[in-house]
Each structure stands twice: as structure tokens, then as C-alpha cells.
Write a protein that binds this DNA or RNA. Structure first.
Lengths: 135, 135
DNA sequence: CGAAATTACCTACAGGTGTAGGTGTTGGCA
DNA sequence: TGCCAACACCTACACCTGTAGGTAATTTCG
């Protein structure tokens, strides 16, 4: 799979602020500007209009989809979280780690460490992943 | 700690093209614009001046350091690769995965799969990381 | 010696991003 | 029923990124 390794190639990848918005939308399934704004404003101050502008742009670029609902809009993610994050990670993997999965994981572990429990669960992930072994 | 340099994590994070340059510099320890240009031009076409501009900007922002050498400059990374990549990964981890190491690894495995050999080596990494277990 | 090459610097520009003010519309409530 | 709050839209702006042309200094080679 992923035969289209470069199909979406030039998607400029979401920036951090954009990702923050997407995260809220993904978490809720769908959301209005006001909802996203409230969620983000809980962490840092920013104007409602900022969120509005960014969501409008995300919609224009196909990251979000919206449906009129009364006088407001209800936004939903146009692409599943897994897919977008997968692309993001793949991109980072290639650009920063020369494609080395181990390199990335090593950095990750060094950066954050890992608890006994996590280690166990991660092992499990690897076992499962190995079933769909790559050639 | 971190008392000596404030150029830590909060910098806007390197973009993809910038990372490509840094990668060349890290790989060689140090490099001139011409060297980086040749390395990058091997993969895609771009003007020498593009590389020059970007490296100058990277120097201004503290990612690269340079020393005059004759009529040219020799650039070196101002920060070790591990540190920068660590910051990058940490950033992605928090922004996109809500801090879940497993989440990132899962995505990574799904995205790229893993060969038997890699799986083995990754296991080892985890074993080692667990020694410096986190609370 | 003079031309070609090399290198840096200055300048520019289109497109993206984060931020937000001002304007117009509308629905709800006093 | 008239005003306010909520909402979207338009506009703007400063900054960043990728890209590169033109210019000037200097080195090197024929």
C-alpha cells in the first residue's frame, strides 16, 4: 500500500496553529468556529476572528469541510486524522531522518523516555506491525 | 539548565527546505554554500543563490554559525542534530499526538511498516530506553 | 594581462501564516 | 420593537519562506 508515495507530495503540510485547530475538530467530530475558539482560547489568548480566518482558509484548502447551519457553519475534517498525521510523520521521517524509522524512534525515546507500561505497549505495536511486514 | 542559550525549543521550528540544508551541514560537520548547493542540486534543481539566501537566514537566526575562510564562508551547525531533531519530534508529539509516544509510534509503523530486522533493532532501543525509565 | 569562474551581498517578489479590526446581518431578549 | 450579542465576510498587515536576478569583489586560468 501507500503506492502513491508522492501523490499528495506537495501538500504544504499543516502548520502548528493549523494543527491545533484540526485537533479540536477531530476530537469532536465536528465543530463551529466558536467551539474551536473556546477550546483554543483556554490555552492561550487569541481573537475569535483569528480562528475564523484560519478555519476559512483550511476550508479553502480542503482540510476542512463545512455545512451551513442556521447563521453559522459547522466544520468537519475533510480527511481522517490518521491519514493526515501519517503524512506528517512520513514527511518528517524522510526530511529529518533520511527515512530511518529507527532514527525517529530513537530520538523519540531519548526525548521523552518511556515508562515500563508504555514500553510494553509499544512492543505489542511492533509485534502487530511486523505481521504486515514490509518487503 | 539551558541557562547559556535561549535558542531552545520555541523557535518557529525549521521548515522542510531549511532542514534539508541542515542535514547536509550536519552530515559533513561543516560545509560551504557551494557544497550544500551541490548536495541539494543532486536531488532537485535550485539556484545557488537560493541556498545562499537560506543559509544566510539560518545564520541570522542562530541555526548555523559561520567563519570566514578566504573569500567564502564555512558554515557549521550551531546546535547538535540530536537536540534539534529532538525538539522537532517533541513538538510534533505534543502538537499532533497530544503527547502520546505510542500514538506517534503507531502512526509511524502504520505509515511505513517495519521489517523483521528493524523490529528487532527497535525492540532493542526500547529495552535500552527503559533503563532510563521515566516516572 | 584579461576573461571566466566563484562567491557574497542586495533586492525583489509571490505565496503562506498569524493576527486582528471593521462592517453587515440576524436572531433573541428585554 | 429596538438593541445587543453572535456570526461571517472583507480587508489589512507584518513577518516568514522559497526562489532567484543582478551586481560587485576576488581568484584563477589561459
Amino acid at each position: 500500500m501507500t503506492g502513491d508515495d508522492e501523490a499528495d507530495g506537495q501538500a504544504p503540510a499543516l502548520s502548528e496553529a493549523q494543527l491545533a485547530i484540526m485537533r479540536v475538530v477531530w476530537d469532536r467530530g465536528e465543530a463551529t468556529v466558536a467551539e474551536v475558539w473556546k477550546a483554543l482560547a483556554a490555552e492561550r489568548t487569541l481573537a475569535r476572528n483569528t480562528v475564523l480566518t484560519m478555519m476559512t482558509r483550511l476550508e479553502e484548502k480542503g482540510w476542512l469541510r463545512r455545512t451551513a447551519e442556521g447563521r453559522a457553519f459547522r466544520y468537519a475534517a475533510a480527511q481522517p486524522r490518521e491519514q493526515v498525521l501519517g503524512g506528517l510523520v512520513g514527511r518528517l521521517l524522510d526530511t529529518a531522518f533520511g527515512g530511518s524509522t529507527e532514527g525517529l524512534i530513537l530520538t523519540l525515546l531519548k526525548e521523552r523516555g518511556v515508562s515500563r507500561d508504555e514500553a510494553k505497549r509499544i512492543r505489542k505495536l511492533i509485534d502487530e506491525a511486523r505481521k504486515t511486514e514490509k518487503e
